[in-house]
Amino acid sequence: MCPPRFFEVSYVINPWMDPTKPVDTALAMTQWEELRDTYRRLGHTVHEITPEPGLPDMVFAANSGTVIDGRVLGSKFRAPERAAEAEHFRRWFVEQGYRDLRMPTKINEAEGDFAWTGRVLLAGTGFRTDPEAHAEAQESLGVPVVSLRLTDPRYYHLDTALFVLAEETDSTPAQVCYYPEAFSPGTRRVLRRMFPDAVLADEGDASCLGVNGVSDGRNVVLPVEATELGDRLAARGYEPVYVDIAELRKAGGGPKCCTMELRK
């Protein structure tokens, strides 16, 4: 995770951003700290990277790396405003001792568009990550990749429209939650075939970035507004954990956007 010390909305690279609306950086920091501390209370280890001035979106750490079995594929941003973030995260991985590290040649916004199910890497495209980056991810990470096409610009990254509730094990299939209307018709058919028992989100869930959740297989961290989705998840046996991250949502980010998962 990366503290939002320099967070602001000074440019527009997604439909959520409006530089004319005021942003409270101190409040963003307080909300981010609550998210970080929530992970710690749930028993998770949180590593922090130092934020850099002039990179207000660096708080959205999910976009800067994909880690599976200790292998790391870095990022390459589409928006020039975020391009410099990739090198800061690359250096962080090196400093932390990651040796199997590759940087992409294609536009690749990491866990913003990649979701690991325990067996397959779901890979989004349509607005940010290039389709060619999916093949590059398969070669770099050594896992099968399934491409999914996003069609609604409000849900510009896969992690705004889908998240993994529980990874696949030898005895149980992966479980996911997704918002069908964010995807192309063909992709919806793929998702129905792969995940017939998925939790389906509606417009109300998606419009507060409720589908930008983080699950450890039991606890599901959601924006505080996503109570209806939380109720449906609770009915499936999950434990909703709500956080207020409304200030960071002004830049199009929720809990998952702020969270890169390190799978060692």
Rank of each mutant, 00 (worst) to 15 (best):
233 L>H: 08
36 R>L: 04
237 G>N: 08
28 A>C: 06
162 L>A: 01
122 L>G: 09
177 C>V: 15
103 M>S: 14
180 P>E: 01
144 P>V: 14
53 P>L: 02
232 R>K: 12
8 E>S: 15
33 E>T: 13
181 E>L: 07
136 E>N: 08
239 E>R: 15
188 R>S: 04
11 Y>F: 15
224 V>S: 14
149 R>T: 14
32 W>E: 06
219 N>S: 15
168 E>Y: 02
118 G>R: 12
228 E>W: 09
13 I>R: 04
150 L>E: 05
86 A>M: 04
119 R>T: 11
71 R>W: 08
131 P>H: 09
170 D>Q: 10
128 R>G: 00
191 L>G: 00
9 V>T: 10
175 Q>D: 06
226 A>P: 06
187 T>S: 09
236 R>E: 02
249 R>I: 04
191 L>E: 00
164 V>Q: 08
146 V>Y: 06
126 G>W: 01
143 V>W: 03
65 G>T: 08
223 P>K: 00
138 Q>V: 06
259 T>Q: 12
194 M>H: 00
184 S>W: 01
202 D>F: 04
11 Y>W: 15
15 P>M: 10
162 L>Q: 00
249 R>T: 14
126 G>F: 02
217 G>A: 03
151 T>K: 00
202 D>R: 00
197 D>Y: 12
68 I>C: 05
10 S>E: 13
241 V>E: 10
234 A>R: 15
163 F>R: 07
210 G>E: 03
106 K>C: 13
64 S>V: 09
140 S>E: 11
80 P>Q: 13
130 D>T: 07
21 K>M: 11
204 G>D: 15
75 S>G: 05
60 F>I: 07
39 Y>G: 06
76 K>R: 15
37 D>R: 13
171 S>L: 13
